[in-house]
């Protein structure tokens, strides 16, 4: 089913325990990645640039925090800013939103994933990482509904397995990935 669908966006959602996974995956992503990567992490409002800096020191690809109406490009990693929901205006443009928290979270993984699913439809790939709450579940369901690709961190490797387990019990996931295999898998999605 995934054979002739070209990945146009890779979403990564995570909460507690997901930063160490990113630090393992990001260094091995190929530089000529043919799609943008958008990361939505739960984090405290206020300490924004610290994370951007940390991830940048572990990545070959440029990593930047998204700002309003930013044009997204292949081979670039975008980080949802703290305290904003991240939405997709279209395939090229991100929009931000300061509306009510969803699942006690802003940014909410559900909000970003649902918005992406509606824009990129079956060409969406989404990876859900370690985490302790339900945010991400509805987002993954929505992506499945549009025929996108569901990827999951192997709960056995997750610092907090609650979030990936929720998905595993409910949905058909295309691939369950250990942190050390994630980059290799993402690199294979390349259309170049």
């Amino acid at each position: 089913m995934a054979a002739n669908k070209q990945t146009e966006i890779l979403l990564i959602g995570g909460s507690a325990g997901s930063i160490s996974v990113l630090l393992k995956m990001l260094p091995d992503l190929r530089r000529d990645l043919s799609f943008p990567v958008v990361i939505v992490l739960h984090r405290k409002a206020g300490n924004e640039s610290g994370l951007e800096l940390l991830l940048n020191t572990h990545s070959n690809l440029p990593i930047m925090e998204a700002y309003d109406k930013i044009n997204i490009r292949p081979g670039t990693v975008y980080l949802a800013p703290a305290d904003y929901h991240l939405l997709f205006e279209d395939k090229e443009q991100i929009g931000l939103d300061f509306s009510e928290k969803v699942n006690y979270s802003r940014p909410s993984i559900d909000v970003a994933f649902q918005s992406a699913a509606r824009v990129f439809k079956a060409n969406t790939a989404a990876l859900l990482l370690s985490g302790a709450n339900n945010d991400g579940l509805k987002g993954m369901e929505c992506i499945a509904q549009y025929g996108g690709m569901l990827l999951l961190q192997d709960p056995a490797t997750a610092e907090v397995a609650f979030m990936p387990k929720q998905v595993l019990f409910r949905m058909n996931v295309q691939q369950i990935l250990q942190p050390e295999n994630m980059a290799r898998f993402m690199n294979q999605l390349n259309g170049n």
Binding site: K69, L87, E89, G95, D97, S99, V111, S115, R118, V119
Partner: peptide, 9 residues
């Protein structure tokens, strides 16, 4: 208005 946000509202 931005469509993505407006649509949610």
């Amino acid at each position: 208005y931005s469509k993505a946000s407006l649509k949610r509202r």
